[in-house]
Simulated scan of single mutants.
Amino acid sequence: MTDTNNTVAPIPSNYLVGFKIESTTNFTFSDEGGFTPLSGTIEHTGTVTFNDQITVGNFSIGLAPGRTVTGVSGFVLRDTFSLNTILFDLGIPGPVAFDGQNLTISDVKLLISPEFANLLQKPKLTGLFGGTARIDAQVAAVPEPDSVLAILVAGAALLATKFYTQKIKST
Rank of each mutant, 00 (worst) to 15 (best):
D3P: 05
T4W: 12
N6P: 02
A9R: 10
A9N: 14
A9S: 15
A9F: 09
P10L: 02
I11D: 05
N14L: 09
N14V: 08
L16S: 08
L16W: 00
G18H: 04
I21S: 02
S23E: 01
T24P: 04
T25P: 14
T28Q: 01
S30V: 03
D31Y: 15
G33N: 00
G33M: 03
G34M: 11
F35C: 00
F35K: 01
L38R: 09
T41R: 13
I42C: 00
H44A: 12
T45R: 15
G46F: 06
G46T: 03
T47L: 00
T49I: 13
T49E: 14
N51A: 13
D52P: 02
Q53C: 00
Q53G: 07
Q53P: 03
Q53V: 07
I54G: 01
G57C: 07
F59I: 00
S60N: 11
S60P: 09
S60R: 15
I61D: 05
I61R: 06
G62N: 10
G62E: 12
G62P: 04
A64P: 08
G66A: 08
R67P: 05
T68S: 10
T70K: 14
V72I: 15
V72R: 13
V72T: 15
L77I: 14
R78P: 05
R78Q: 15
D79H: 12
D79T: 10
T80M: 05
S82P: 02
S82Y: 08
T85C: 09
T85N: 10
F88S: 05
F88L: 12
F88N: 05
P93W: 13
G94A: 11
V96Q: 04
F98K: 06
G100T: 07
N102A: 08
N102E: 11
L103S: 05
T104Q: 10
T104L: 01
V108A: 11
L111E: 08
I112R: 07
I112L: 11
S113F: 02
P114I: 08
E115L: 05
E115V: 13
F116R: 03
F116N: 03
A117K: 04
N118W: 02
L119I: 04
L119M: 06
L120R: 10
P123N: 13
K124N: 13
T126I: 10
T126L: 07
G131C: 13
G131F: 06
T132V: 14
A133E: 01
D136K: 02
D136E: 13
Q138V: 09
V139K: 06
A140H: 04
V142Y: 10
P143T: 04
E144K: 06
I151A: 12
A154W: 08
G155M: 02
A156N: 14
L159E: 13
K162Y: 00
Y164E: 09
T165R: 09
T165Y: 06
Q166W: 11
K167S: 12
K167W: 08
